[in-house]
Nucleic acid binder design. Structure first.
Lengths: 197, 197, 197, 197
DNA sequence: CATGAATGAGTGTTCATTCAT
DNA sequence: TATGAATGAACACTCATTCAT
């Protein structure tokens, strides 16, 4: 597969898949339904994707690629590690809050896929994990974060927290404002539960 | 469904389901395979469970019920909120480390079930969430945790962190010792990333 | 698969396959059509056969097994090699003349199957080839046939001749009497084209 | 279809079909594969052939046309009927032995085509059958063959024998020399199995 | 209570053919 | 003539569930 430039059908199909999966759920999203939503014939799908799983992997790669690189570009302009972290959380929440369909697909529907697909999804997430690691390292270098932090564990804490918060928000049908929680989450991650003295 | 007392087949089937799903994966775990592992006929399954999903929900209820009530009993003997939290983390990790099959099923395989099943699973988890809330409240009452904490968010942070850590451990094939990370996780949750002064 | 005794559905399905293939042709004989003709559900087919090809192989094995063993039993009662050969030809023609459906399936339809299936079909035919070889050997031993015959080539001549004659008869829609040609064919095989002196 | 003169692509496509079918088997020989082998676009095929079946029929017509007319030219130079028959067998074997691809396609692969295709193939073979009939008639006229032979049956015997021998040779992967069997086959056809006196 | 043979709805994928360029 | 992207009909097989015994 080449770049997505000048491959309008490729993107049509991916966008159709996001919509169909978000609205019908993973298991009710037949290839024929995606094709119809994309306005192409069933067979056309297979000119652009190897099989059904490949649609989903590609979907995740394209969308999460965008998701991650937007965060990346934003935080590299900022020097202060805590501000970097705030931006990361803010953009994580913002991007998902702006695209409910995508949020549903990545947080809920794609997780009920096969182990093999989830391994490929994890591959994509590695880029995000590395970015978190770099923010934490920067914080340590800047004397803002404790120097003896277990980097991997911190990353799991940050990602696990954000992921759980977004998933809960979606399960509550986006009834409250996700984005206004950014500062509170940041505060919690940075300072923990304990009373300071 | 009655109580599980004197319903040996009921438990046979649930234990068979855990084993079959852990070893074959969710999608390769047909009812007939579970029946064979349990040593009963396919049709017998339906004398104890409404349908396949009901096996999985019941499995989760039984196993998570145990899981939660063991933690509950342990932490109620402790008064100090931080020690309660340490125990909660410790027992969370311990119980999953002691039963790899169960860990695989609850952390990975059951998550590829339908949205409906996951809603029921969340129902079961509510008991755990309440327990976390109580620990946090106790900490606030005891002057150990900040009084203006957003209780729901704190719970999402704690659960999200523990869940992500356990899932990573399983995806790395249990290659390292989960239990020895307890204190480090506790420290991170209680004190956050920031340098104290 | 056990013996066919007490497996009524097994035989129902095979007989349905013969009828459906003879009437609709190989390529228009879907599993669902065979199931309907057999009076069972589609899925039932797969309780008795591994897959569609297995129906065809089994069909051939069952029917050709009968076909061959009937000829076998008949010719072993006869001692004279030429009479054995006459019986072989006679029963070959008779059995196919008596079951037009089976004749169509084995002579025409099953030959448009995949190379793999045809290899398995050849396996079954080996029993027939051995029988022909034995008749020829007997004829040599009895001083009736030439002693320097190439046994394999003779077998190919006999089988090729019978097969071509039956196929032509079927392609002419069984319009003439196959069985009354037995003596003429025997004469041709035994004495060849040449004028005797 | 016009004559093949000045229709280079027409022959390119037919030769590509022979190669592709011989190497991949009938069922794995998609139109697109033949087009690629021929060095033309898929759509171009349909400028020269009505549909896929038409490629195969034309292939058979072209190749068998050659096959038959070469035999025809050879035997008309010979007057003795037995020598005619020897030449016919010899050239039948020789031509197929010299072009393994063609032999595989005509003896094995094309036979797994639909009944309709095989009817058209038979049409082409009629020319060959007539030629055999003429050789047999010549033999009778020359007093070499019995006068009361059933011409049609003799033709089926001769063709069935040659066809079966060639098919066996191909199924044994051309492991032995087909051509050196000519005299033995001729002897068998002319004199039959019986001892002469 | 227990059995297990039978059911039948549901779907990803292929590939011959078309037609706008 | 020539192209090749797009089409869409067609089908074997699985497996959760039932029910006669």
């Amino acid at each position: 597969m080449n770049t997505k430039i000048n491959r309008p059908k490729y993107n049509q199909i991916i966008d159709a898949a996001v919509k169909v999966i978000a609205e019908n759920g993973y298991h009710a999203s037949q290839v024929s339904k995606i094709a119809k939503q994309a306005g192409v014939a069933d067979g056309t799908i297979y000119l652009y994707f190897k099989n059904k799983e490949d649609i989903l992997v590609s979907l995740f790669q394209e969308k999460m690629g965008d998701f991650i690189s937007k965060i990346e570009k934003a935080i590299e302009k900022e020097t202060d590690a805590i501000e970097k972290l705030r931006l990361l959380i803010s953009m994580h929440f913002n991007q998902l809050a702006e695209d409910h369909h995508l949020a549903i697909v990545t947080q809920l529907e794609l997780r009920q896929s096969s182990k093999e697909l989830r391994l490929k999804i994890n591959e994509v997430l590695k880029g995000y994990f590395i970015m978190i690691d770099q923010v934490v390292s920067a914080g340590i270098d800047q004397g803002l974060f404790q120097s003896d932090l277990n980097n991997k564990m911190v990353r799991q804490m940050i990602f696990g927290t954000l992921d759980e918060i977004v998933t809960n928000w979606i399960m509550k049908d986006h009834k409250y404002d996700l984005v206004q929680q950014v500062d509170e989450v940041l505060e919690l991650i940075v300072n923990g539960l304990a009373v300071k003295n």
